[in-house]
């Protein structure tokens, strides 16, 4: 059963060393630091209801190139931390020529304790609509094994690239984009409820 927890709410006894994000220990008890969802039978883990994107190594995100430097680019990744994309000196892979204002997908290569974030594998995105949703709702847009993503793509016909940082790139006919966006916003608002997949399916099928 899903439950809402609030900052300072006790979660149980502390019997593990590595604590998930948003869980802290005081004495021998664990507490939630976040306003979020827990599923107690699934262990101590909080899904925050909101929060800005914090870069995780391996995540694919959608960034906006801010500035070009001789060694690479500064990229906005919709996070309190800005990303740095270095141009590799020797590489077999094609590295695209980028300009400030370009929208790219990039992967988080590494990050350190003071918040420097290194990016890799850029790919330019052109001619679409960039939308932003709460990063905490992105897993729901993917769905189990990408099932929700496939559902939206197949029923509307849009091309969709979903960044873990809350940014989504949609490309297609205007009304297809509108349908897809409507479904995405619906997921964003109802992510904490049960039955979202079916409701979205009905919504998309009804729209057509």
């Amino acid at each position: 059963m899903r439950e809402i927890v609030i900052p300072g709410e006790p979660l149980g006894e502390a019997n593990q060393d590595r604590l998930p994000y948003g869980v802290f220990r005081e004495g021998d008890k664990l507490y939630s630091a976040l306003y979020g969802l827990v599923e107690p039978d699934k262990g101590i883990r909080i899904t925050p209801l909101n929060g800005r994107y914090l870069p995780r190594v391996g995540d694919v995100v959608i960034g906006i190139v801010i500035m070009a430097r001789h060694s690479g680019y500064v990229v906005d990744i919709n996070s309190p931390y800005v990303g740095h994309l270095s141009i590799p000196r020797h590489s077999n892979l094609k590295f695209p020529r980028l300009n400030p204002g370009d929208v790219v997908t990039v992967k988080i290569a590494s990050k350190n304790e003071v918040g420097d974030v290194a990016l890799e594998s850029p790919r330019r995105l052109v001619k679409g609509k960039l939308i932003e949703i709460l990063p905490t709702k992105i897993p729901r847009v993917f769905g189990k094994s990408g099932s929700m993503l496939d559902l939206i793509k197949n029923t509307t016909g849009v091309q969709m690239i979903v960044g873990r940082n809350g940014r989504i790139w949609l490309r297609g006919e205007p009304d297809a984009i509108i349908k897809a966006e409507r479904a995405i916003r619906f997921i964003e608002e109802n992510a904490h409820k049960y039955g979202v997949t079916d409701a979205v399916k009905k919504m998309l099928e009804g729209d057509i």
């Binding site: 906006i64 801010i66 906005d76 960039l130």
Partner: peptide
């Protein structure tokens, strides 16, 4: 975001707004 970075984001969104406008859509 600095003012410069903010403008960057608007340029991207602006592209889309203009494309819709050409089709008479908002």
């Amino acid at each position: 975001m600095t003012k410069f970075e903010d403008e960057m984001l608007w340029n991207i969104k602006s592209d889309y707004v203009h494309r819709l406008a050409q089709q008479g859509l908002r």
